[in-house]
Structures are given as C-alpha cells and as structure tokens.
Design a binder for these strands. Structure first.
Length: 936
DNA sequence: TCTCTGCCCAGAGGA
C-alpha cells in the first residue's frame, strides 16, 4: 500500500523495545493527498497489487517510520511532501494509522527529481555536490574524453563499427578538443584503448549467452523522485561505464551507488534487478588484479535491498536540502578533505561567502552587501529551479486526455514509420492532428513516448521537422504517439554559475561600480559617429569611451539596433574584440544583421562568428555559425581569430564561451534579462554596454508563481531585496543615471500614435525623428487610402467600444469586431500582411485567429515585442472591470501601443478601461478625434 | 489557465 501526503506537524522520534530488541521510530503527522490523485496513481501501480487506502476526511493521520527511515524523518518539516511505499495500516482508537514495513521505501519531496549524478556526488561529499552546482564543471580533457568513450560505447551497442564510431564521435567534439589543445589523432588513439576493453568484454558476452541490450536509457522515477540516464541496460540490469582504472576487487562505492539508482528506476518500470555491472575500461591485461588475477574490466556486484534503501535515503537528503535551501558544510559525510580535488575551491567559496565548511576557509569574506546579494539571488535562482521541477512533476500528474489544452505536449499523434539511420539511431515519423498547437519547436529535445511520457515506453528524441508530419531522431525505435517537453535545468545551472563567477572570480573594480561603491568613468572620444541624431551619437561615444560600462536606453523605434552596430564598428576599428549578446536568438540575429552591414569592408566576414545551435540561428546567419564538429585546430582558430562573436546570454554561460575573453560586451534587450543572465555575458569582457528599455517587458521568470516556493512554516521569510524580475539594466539606470543616454528620436510611429507612450512612459521626451515620420499615414502606402475608411478610423488612433462577453480570457464579440475591422482596412487597400492584432491572452489570440484567417499576424503582447507593423489592432479582452495581473503591468500596454507605424485601433470595453487611471488616460487620448461607440 | 525564451539532455573524471 502506498501513502502520500503533506507533513502536518512536528515529527516525534523515540526508541521502543520490541520483540526484535531496541528499535527507533519516528511518528510523522500526515495530511493525506486527495484520493482522486491516489486512485489515478493506483491505476498505474498494477505491478504492486497493493491498494492505496485513503480516507475521505482531511484530518491528519500518522505514519510511523521505523529504524533507518528515522534518518529521513529527521529531514522532514511541516509542509513537506512524503511518500511511503508498501505501508501497512494499523487501527488505533478508531483511526487508521500507517507504518513502514520491511519492504517500505520512504521518499521525501518525491516530486523533486534528483539527478543520479547529484546522488553520486553527494555520497562523496555533500559539499562537493553544492560546489559542482555553484561553479559548474570546467572544460577539461578527461571529461571530454570520457564523454567520447561513452558515445562510442553506445554506438557499439547499437551495432556501429568501432573505427567509424571513433572517427565520428571525435569529429563531433572538434571545437572542445581544439580549445583543450588536443589533436584528433591523439584523442582517437586514447579512445581506441578504452574501446578495445569494451569490445573485448562485449565479445565474451556474445560467445556465452544471448544478450539483450539497450543503450543510454533515460529513466525517470515517479516513486523515488530520481532521474538519470543509464549508460546501458543489459538483460534488465544497469551497466555503468567508467573511463578510469580500478584494480580493486570491488567497484568504487559511489559507482555502486550510481548503478543502484538506475536499478531502482528499472525496478519501478517493471524489472527485477539484483545485479549491477561496472565497466572500468582502463583496466587492461597489464593491470592484473593482485587479489583475484582478474583481467576483465567488468565488475559485477549484487544489488542488495540495503543498498537500494541507502540510496533513497541519500536522495532524501538532497531533496530536503534543495527544498529548505540549506548549504552543506561537508560535516554531513565522512570524506577526507585532504584527498579531495575540490579542496581549494571549497575553502575559497567558504572563505569568501563566509560559509561553514569542514575543509576550512581561505581568504576574507566578501563585503556584507555582496554576501547578502549572493544569498538573495541564489535563492531566487533555486526557486526557478524548483519551478523547472514542477514541470517534471506535470509529466505524470495528469491523465493524457486532460492535457489536450496543455501546449507543453503534443498528443494523439498517429505513428507512421521507423527507419534505421547510420550509426544505429532511428528516424521516427508521425502525423499530427490538424490544428494542434504546442510550444514544441524544431530542434527541441522531447520525451517521445507510445502514450505516457513516464509510464510508457519513452525515449529522449530530437524534433527534426515539425509540420503536419513530425520527424524525430532517437536511439530507440519508439512507436511515437505523444511528445512532451523535456524540462531542463541547464539555464538555472548557468545562472548560478554566472552569479558565482561574477561575485567570486569577478573584477573588484566592477563590483565596486555595480554595488554603488564607485562611479563609472568614461574617456569619451571627440569624434562624431552619427551625424543627425545627437542622442545616438552620444550613446556611441559613451559606449566607446566607457571604462566600466555604459547604458543605452532605447524606447520603441529609436534605432537602438543601428546604434549598437555603429558602436561595435567603432570598437572594432579600434582593434577591440567584441561580444554581441542578447537573451533571444532572434535579438542576436537582428543585431548581427545590422552589424554586418556596418562591418562591410571594415572586417573580413570570417572574423565575425555566431555561436549557437543550428536550430536557434536564423537561416541567413547560418554562414557565420561556428560549426562544432571538425578538425580541432581549425575549429578553435575560427573562434579565437574572430573579432566579433555573437551569442545568446545562455550560450555565453557554456563552457566553450567561458574559455573566451573580450574587450567589450554589448548586450541588447538587456531589460529583459535577469541580473545573473546579464553576468553570463559581461563577465567575459573588460567593459560592457547594456542596451534596452525598462519601460517595456521585464525578464520572464517562472518562479513568480508562489506555488513553486516551499511552504515551510518556520519561515523567517523577509521579503527579497533582489528577485529575478528586475534587470541589471534597470537597476543600473537607477544607480548610475549619468552613465547612460536615452535615445529620444523615434523612426516608427506617427506623431499621434507616439504621443501617449511618450507622455506616460518617457516623460514626454520621445519625439518623431523627422516630419515625415510624424506625418506618416496609410496614404503613404501604395494602393491604400484613408478616405476609403469610415470616418471613425481615419485618425491614426481610434477606439472602438465593444461591450464584450463575460468570459475572462476570451471575448468573441471583440474577435468578431476585429474581423470586421480587418475587412474594412483591406477594403481601403491595405495588404492583410501589414496588419497585426495583439491580445493579452493566448486564448484570445486563438479566438481572433479563428475569426481572422489569412496573413494577419495575431499574437500576444509579449511575442510582439521587438517588432512593428503598419496597422495594429489591440484587443483588450476585458469586460466590466480590468481584472487580472496581466493588466497591472503597464509596461505591457506600452509595448502594445508602440508597435504600429501608421494606424492604431484599440478595441475594448470602455467601462472596464475607465476603472484604471492609466487605461483611462489612454482612452481619453484614443478618443480625442475618433467617434466613440463605433458600432456604425 | 496571465504573460514565456533559453539550453546538446545528463554525465563525462581527476587519485
């Protein structure tokens, strides 16, 4: 039987005498999860056979954890989730209580999925686990070689020829090997030695018995809250490959722990695992084992119950630490610090952040404000991590049919065919039902399954093509009927590492400036860079002359992309090496496009490099994209000889980019970046320039939702001084207002259109760059005529009052009216492709799309940011009152109202809009000329 | 059910 619930009070721990002697127990008050979930879960637990007994009432009950599980009980705090498998019931004073049995596992916070490598690190030393998370693993040769050996191993299992596999896998890692100064031949030779050990061992197996293999299996455990990828599974049991040497009789303990993690997960998926294999591929005939005379690289060991339970207790420690946000000290484990490779790092981190540590401390603590900053920002990043974990939990929380509206999955695919590819992989094809939408995109990594992403047959796959037909590549031939987003912690890992690098490895002068202890300095050139726009010219001068940093505030349409390009050209002409970065691939490519124009004739094309994945980089920028595969020396030369490198901030946090350094970094759309996100780019450069507009949308942060934060009761939760929703750009604009320039001439909007945004968001300082811009109308467009429009739409800004319906996220009355408006504009000679429709909610976007077919772009405000259109129609989708947080952030209306060049039509319920002062002023402005109540 | 983009996934190893 299965018990799952929330800890409802203090845990009591004591010893009692039983017929087996003295035993420890812990009594945990537990509020059971609702039985709806349990029934759902039970249906999937057919192998177990035990029925979950759950009460209707939500009064807390008690679950007694016996003996070693009391260790996990010590981790529990009120508000935490617990799961107990194979529990038994006890009737006690008319109430049903629960207790562990000899078969039970106790899982703390089961929805937090702990990585297998995390458990492996933790068993070495909990603080090692923390340090790895904090600073990331740098690029080093043993790690890269180890990865290649693993890939070759997988290839061999899938039937690929050895030499072909080695050539291909070494080639794929050309760039990394080049950065490490390795040659392809030397690496191949080393890999060949490891691979020979693998091959010999595989050969033995083939002679003696028939083997069934599966390589690189991704496993996710719903029960134990563990996820990881087994190197191989042979006859249902895990095989772990190690590149190193082990001449002892037994496998290393942490390797056993790793294999035991996979065994647990395989058992949950219906296996019966009692053995694990470790393959130490550096063992050779020369290294004959002293005790056993054994030559083989393989060591089998039997997987006892005790080990599996020990592993779950380790995993519980990690989950509890993550949820509570505590920092391990090293005293939790028995490792000897003097043998540890990370001892120095450990002591420095302890010293600088003033953390308690078994290894001791080196160096003076950072100033108090910096330590506080570290606390707050790292806590915010961890909240973000929990939000990612929340998405993992969603993989099995709901039944497939309930996810029909969830755009994180594509369901009901019709499986087409599977085709073997070169190298043992598979191409899988499936048909997509008509009209499905999802956030999945080409290039994404997904869980491809035959029905359920966790319980069914599932495999990690890459989306190669996504239209009516879905084309995937994967290691195994899964008969795909469903795709789920595979959530990744990569971004949060990189944010944490960027924070660490900035605070602990960063330049002191820079920290003085960013923490307000010193003012930024400038050495501006006298040169004129841009003739007819003083603000742009000043921006370039400051960017070029900044000794610390410069800020360029670019409201909508003010030519910030051009200004960036001009500034970078000036830097390049001075011989600087420059990094161009932004949060999105789209922004990077836009800025790069403008830059290439500027650099034409200044710098050779091959000295401009775009770093990013093939699917992320726009087609026309592919020629500049740095290929990772190839000859190591050539690949690294291509990157290191580049004078300009363009990449997203996430890519700047990658190991390849961290090996680069620049004189200057320019970050576009910086107001949409979190502080640590910005650090990822700027820590690579001596000086930096941030370009953005904090009056438009702020960074997207998942953890804004309170439900991802732990609800622990003892909380001394003082409000955060720093969360991730304020950008470094915005903070620096406030801290050092003189270090920036606002671009004040806009090249986009008719004067009437820009007036409201200028007054409301830019202190009235935004103005049209030229009379021609100020006087733009539809008449300028070929074939279009304002005279052909009804009078109420002739003004560049119009308001159409629609009473609307009571639905909260859609409004079909507005959608229908918008369809009419589109027709009206079309009749007046406008191309449909020059009309855009903006709505606050995705639901309304699809409602409008249903009413307005064809080339009209319909999208959310958020997705419209950064682009413009001749005519924009805004659907406010609110009736009666302006309810909902989406309306509270006025930056969103700033974005919506500043997209059009020649005409803006606001469609909404005047009564609702009048309830808010800002929307009210907007209404006044929009209604100045236009006729109200525009229903003909 | 508010809005949502990134990222070669997780793990590769040193004595």
């Amino acid at each position: 039987m299965y018990v799952r619930g929330t800890v409802a009070g203090e845990v009591e721990r004591r010893s009692v005498s039983t017929k087996y002697g003295e035993s420890d127990l812990a009594e945990v008050p537990l509020r059971l999860d609702s039985d709806h979930d349990a029934a759902d879960r039970e249906a999937s637990e057919s192998a177990d056979g035990g029925a979950a007994v759950l009460e209707e009432n939500h009064e807390p009950t008690t679950v007694t954890l016996w003996n070693k599980w009391t260790e996990s009980a010590e981790l529990l705090e009120p508000g935490m989730e617990v799961l107990v498998t194979d529990a038994k019931t006890e009737e006690c004073q008319g109430k049903t209580k629960f207790a562990t049995t000899g078969e039970s596992y106790v899982v703390v916070e089961p929805s937090f999925l702990v990585n297998v490598t995390a458990i492996r690190n933790w068993v070495d030393c909990p603080r090692l686990y923390y340090l790895n998370k904090l600073s990331g693993v740098p690029l080093n040769y043993p790690v890269v070689k180890g990865t290649i050996v693993h890939e070759v191993f997988g290839d061999l299992l899938r039937g690929r020829a050895l030499e072909e596999a080695i050539d291909a896998r070494v080639d794929e890692r050309g760039l990394e090997l080049g950065l490490l100064g390795e040659s392809a031949d030397a690496v191949s030779e080393e890999v060949r030695e490891n691979a020979a050990a693998i091959e010999g061992w595989l050969e033995q197996g083939r002679l003696t018995e028939e083997d069934s293999w599966r390589s690189e299996q991704l496993l996710i455990s719903e029960t134990f809250g563990i996820r990881g990828r087994a190197d191989a599974v042979r006859r249902g049991a895990p095989v772990e490959l190690k590149t190193g040497k082990n001449l002892k009789k037994e496998p290393r303990f942490k390797d056993k722990v790793q294999a035991a993690c996979y065994a647990l997960m395989l058992e949950e998926h219906g296996g019966d695992v009692d053995v694990g294999t470790l393959l130490y591929t550096k063992n050779s005939a020369l290294d004959r084992n002293e005790e056993t005379g054994d030559l083989t690289p393989a060591k089998e060991f039997s997987m006892g119950d005790g080990l599996l339970k020990f592993v779950v207790r380790l995993r519980n420690e990690i989950a509890a630490t993550e949820v509570q946000g505590t920092v391990p000290t090293g005293y939790e484990g028995n490792a000897k610090c003097e043998y540890c490779f990370e001892q120095d790092t450990c002591m420095v981190v302890s010293g600088r952040l003033d953390q308690e540590s078994k290894a001791g401390q080196i160096g003076r603590p950072l100033p108090a404000d910096e330590r506080e900053y570290f606390e707050e920002v790292s806590r915010a990043i961890e909240a973000e991590r929990r939000a990612v974990h929340h998405e993992y939990a969603k993989l099995w929380e709901q039944r497939p049919q309930e996810r029909a509206d969830d755009d994180r999955a594509l369901i009901d695919l019709e499986f087409g065919e599977k085709r073997p590819l070169e190298g043992g992989r598979w191409e899988l094809r499936a048909e997509q039902p008509a009209g499905t939408t999802s956030k999945l995109r080409e290039g994404d990594l997904v869980l491809a399954s035959d029905g359920h992403p966790v319980r069914g047959n599932a495999e990690l796959a890459r989306i190669e093509r996504l239209d009516d037909e879905v084309v995937l590549t994967a290691d195994e031939p899964v008969e795909v009927t469903r795709l789920d987003v595979y959530p990744s912690e990569l971004t949060t890992d990189r944010l944490l590492a960027a924070l660490h690098d900035f605070l602990l490895k960063g330049d002191d002068r820079r920290k003085d400036v960013l923490f307000g202890r010193a003012d930024p300095t400038f050495d501006e050139p006298e040169e004129t860079f841009i003739d007819n726009n003083p603000a742009q010219n000043e921006a370039v001068r400051m960017a070029v002359g900044a000794e610390d940093f410069a800020l360029v505030h670019g409201p909508p349409g003010t030519g910030k992309t051009y200004t960036i390009a001009r500034a970078i050209r000036a830097m390049v002409e001075r011989g600087e090496r420059v990094l161009l970065s932004a949060f999105t691939n789209r922004a990077v490519d836009n800025a790069l496009e403008a830059l290439l124009e500027q650099l034409d004739g200044v710098v050779d094309d091959d000295r401009v490099v775009r770093v990013g994945s093939e699917s992320g980089v726009r087609t026309d920028m592919q020629p500049y994209r740095l290929e990772r595969a190839g000859d190591p020396a050539e690949r690294v030369a291509e990157l290191e000889d580049a004078q300009v490198v363009a990449a997203t901030t996430a890519t700047c946090g990658s190991r390849v980019m961290k090996a680069q350094s620049f004189d200057s970094a320019l970050v576009d759309e910086a107001a949409q970046l979190t502080e640590p996100g910005t650090f990822a780019a700027i820590t690579l450069a001596d000086r930096f320039v941030l370009v953005g507009d904090h009056e438009q949308l702020p960074p997207v942060v998942r953890s804004g939702d309170e439900s991802h934060r732990p609800e622990l009761t003892d909380g001394d939760d003082e409000p955060l001084g720093h969360d991730l929703t304020e950008s470094l750009f915005e903070r620096l604009v406030a801290l050092h207002p003189d270090s920036g320039v606002m671009l004040d001439q806009q090249y986009r909007m008719n004067q009437r259109i820009q007036a409201f945004a200028s007054r409301e968001f830019y202190d009235g300082q935004l103005r049209p760059a030229t009379p021609a811009v100020a006087g733009r109308t539809l008449d300028d467009l070929e074939g279009a005529s304002r005279e052909a429009l009804p009078e109420s739409l002739r003004d560049p800004v119009a308001f159409v009052d629609v009473e609307g319906d009571d639905d909260r996220y859609t409004d079909s009355a507005e959608a229908a009216r918008i369809a009419e408006l589109v027709e009206t504009y079309e009749a007046a000679g406008l191309e449909r492709s020059s009309i855009g429709v903006i709505a606050p909610f995705r639901a309304q976007v699809s409602e409008i799309s249903n009413h307005v077919p064809g080339d009209v772009t319909v999208d959310t405000v958020d997705r419209f940011q950064g682009s413009s259109q001749e005519v924009i129609i805004v659907s406010f989708t609110a009736t009666g009152s302006l309810e909902g947080p989406i309306f509270e952030d006025y930056r969103r209306i700033n974005v919506a109202l500043t997209r059009p060049k020649r005409a803006l039509v606001l469609v909404g319920d005047a009564r609702a809009l009048e309830t808010d002062p800002v929307y009210g002023r907007m209404l006044e402005w929009a209604s100045q000329v236009s006729v109200r109540g525009g229903r003909d």
